[in-house]
Amino acid sequence: MSAIDAVASAFIVAGALFSLAAGVALTRFPDILSRMHAATKPQVLGLLLVLLGCALRFRNTVDITTLVLIGAFQLTTAPVAAHMVGRVAYRSGLQRPDLLVVDELADRDR
């Protein structure tokens, strides 16, 4: 196993661990807004790390451009999806006031 392959493996394992953290947070966190943090965030870095490891393994332009596209799509679309779901969650009253230290949005709407 060459040095680059070792680095690639390390990236992929790290990425998998971030995915696991997202899974744990998803089952463990108490309300939907906290769960969404876990879902969009470590997940993005986790996927990027796996893609990076993948790119280090292939090392040719055709595959790397594909991997760059996957990463770029993920980075541009994840926030939009998160915002859509988060907004609907808040508007349908799924947030838990007991878990919020400050809620300025509720203060405004009142």
Partner: peptide, 11 residues
């Protein structure tokens, strides 16, 4: 902001 963990745009 959305991509960086710990923050989520609600509205």
């Amino acid at each position: 902001l959305s991509l960086v963990p710990g923050s989520l745009i609600v509205e």
